[in-house]
Amino acid sequence: MRSRSKTDAWTRKLHYYLGLYFLLFVWLFSLSGLVLNHPGWTFAQFWPQRRQSQYERLVRQDNTQTDTARAREIMGQVGIRGEVEWLTEMQAPGHLGFRVTRPGYTYEVDFDQSRGIASIHKTTVNAWGLLSALHHFNGVHAGDPRNTRDWFLTTVWTFCMDALAAGLIFTVLSGVYMWYRSGRNRYAGLVALLTGIIASCVVVFGRG
């Protein structure tokens, strides 16, 4: 009996603590999800307001490395940070072309190996663009083995997403547990829960 009340107390505490810890993450992903689902909202449109610039930098060469290592070396020399993405359309003989992304910024780098010059096209988006990018920035490209998560901070952000997902699952389960254990609002709570379950099943399975 005593251990059960201890479990109840800790469940309640963790429900509070995890909810508060993840509060800003939840708000970020909720707001960005809402904005992503409404591309017609003019106030949140960021692509037409993007800023672009083009510049060139001289780069010291080292031909003994792999493409990824060379890309990282070039990025280090020209002061770019982010997730490297290899695109077929950016490949040309004698050139090393790649895209670097991080929330708010995109760099398209074309390194001319014969001249030792990197041409960089930089695109910057506003706060709405940053919000949108944070929502889906995970470094994953399905079915493309060349493009894997390769930046430390992408891994950190992906871990934050995973932790949030796990935290939300715990918050849901602890909420249901507390409702059940409290004994209050049994029927109304059950109706709300069943409505949610039925509605989610309908959208997943029950279409024409």
Binding site: I169, L193, I197
Partner: peptide, 18 residues
């Protein structure tokens, strides 16, 4: 309570998909 109970399956769905 009621909003949370209604949200429970949807939030779980989103969390699993992450």
């Amino acid at each position: 309570l009621y909003a949370g109970m209604f949200l429970a399956p949807f939030v779980t769905l989103f969390a699993v998909s992450v």
